[in-house]
Design a binder for these strands. Structure first.
Lengths: 141, 141
DNA sequence: AGGATATCGTTGCAATCGCAACGATGTCAA
DNA sequence: TTGACATCGTTGCGATTGCAACGATATCCT
């Protein structure tokens, strides 16, 4: 049989890295704000754009649209996000951060950046890692 | 507000890479052999070692032991894996591939390697990517 | 105009997941 | 020996996930 080492296999390594970094970071904000990874992604995306539809987040943040929908519902219930129907297209729902939501994102973003910085520092350097990851991502388009 | 781009954020990029590569590869064997990612990991690990306990797979393959247990149960039902109690320690269950299981792994491994090769080739080179991923993994220990 | 078709967001449901608790077995110490 | 404790693998159960179908709205074509 061809010899094969699972822990040298690229998809396995990536899954490992993803689950560890994602969990490590999520632990930093879940306790403080009670939001999930999906909800974090939505508010992070909303912090870039003033007002966006569910569909846009679904496409740009690579989430299922039902994930966005459910995340938005929870975020609205928690007072972080406001939902209103698009005045021009009744099918669309426009999402935007509330003041409370903006405050939360304003707290999380520095945590995110410092988490990332520390990770890259511990891996030595960082620019080279970013470059290689980008190449991989492009290869998967 | 501090500006922040989700698609430049390391944990997000890694999650993206992991889900795409994992899904892309899984599509290649799920249709043919009807096994899940967890089951693939178990058989891949079994292909390296003659006979191992559930606990060993759980530790080395970074899976919850209940995942290993359930995956092993399904694999046994499908005839890919044999389970028997350890003769020296009645608590342990020793897992091993059957002939059918070895045949399956023998088919999947070349697929895995060629999938990985193509991915790295499309990302240009590959050695540098592997090195950077290893550094990241070490940084997360 | 109006019916067929497409798109958007939501929801019902089944499968999967992780945690915690369990029974079974083994170990250790008194 | 025997009782307390540890470890192994499994399972029950609640939470999360993804898919597919749905109602509502918009667009297109005749």
């Amino acid at each position: 049989m061809t010899e094969f080492r699972l822990d040298e296999f690229l998809p396995y390594q990536l899954a490992e890295l993803a689950s560890r970094t994602s969990r490590g970071f999520a632990d930093l904000y879940r306790k403080k704000f009670g939001i999930s990874v999906a909800e974090w992604r939505v508010v992070a995306h909303l912090s870039q754009s003033e007002e966006v539809s569910v569909r846009e987040v679904h496409e740009r943040a690579q989430m299922g649209k039902w994930q966005v929908s459910r995340a938005a519902a929870r975020l609205e219930a928690a007072g972080y996000v406001r939902k209103r129907p698009d005045p021009e297209d009744g099918r669309l729902v426009r999402l935007a951060l509330t003041g409370k939501g903006r405050a939360m994102v304003g707290e999380i973003i520095p945590i995110a950046l410092s988490y990332e910085r520390e990770l890259l520092a511990r891996a030595g350097g960082g620019d080279e890692i970013r470059k290689q990851l980008r190449k991989l991502l492009e290869a998967l388009e």
